[in-house]
Design a binder for these strands. Structure first.
Length: 106
DNA sequence: TCCTTGACGGAGA
DNA sequence: ATCTCCGCCAAGG
């Protein structure tokens, strides 16, 4: 990844723009930040986010509508709690993207 | 250097 | 629904 500064800023801007109650996938964020097919780079950046970040990192999930942390991990718990507190409901381990996927613009 | 490893994703089988 | 295989690409062994 080691994306340049400009790219990183774009990614943060996109993440910050995801509205409450909506979610976006890593790939979607990458695309909206003009980094097509760089989903992994986005995931990498997320993993390096400081724990006290104010960004709504938890609104970014994978394209399958699942949280990208092991089910039994603390990260999974933290992310799921925040999403549910915003009114997002889970069907087992998954989120119904038909209802919660953020439409980048339109 | 080569190989593996990721908060990933889409196409096939 | 599950499982490979392949892009993608920097980091660390």
């Amino acid at each position: 990844m080691a994306l340049d500064e400009l790219s990183r800023q774009k990614v943060w801007q996109v993440v910050a723009a995801i509205p409450c109650g909506k979610v976006a996938s890593y790939g979607q964020v990458a695309e909206l930040a003009d980094l097509p097919r760089q989903a992994r780079a986005v995931g990498k950046m997320m993993s390096q986010l400081p724990k006290d970040s104010r960004l709504p990192w938890y609104r970014v999930i994978n394209a399958q509508g699942r949280i990208s942390f092991p089910f039994d991990s603390e990260g999974y718990q933290r992310q799921r709690e925040r999403l549910e507190s915003e009114g997002i409901e889970f069907s087992g381990e998954r989120i119904n993207l038909k209802h919660y996927r953020w439409d980048g613009l339109a």
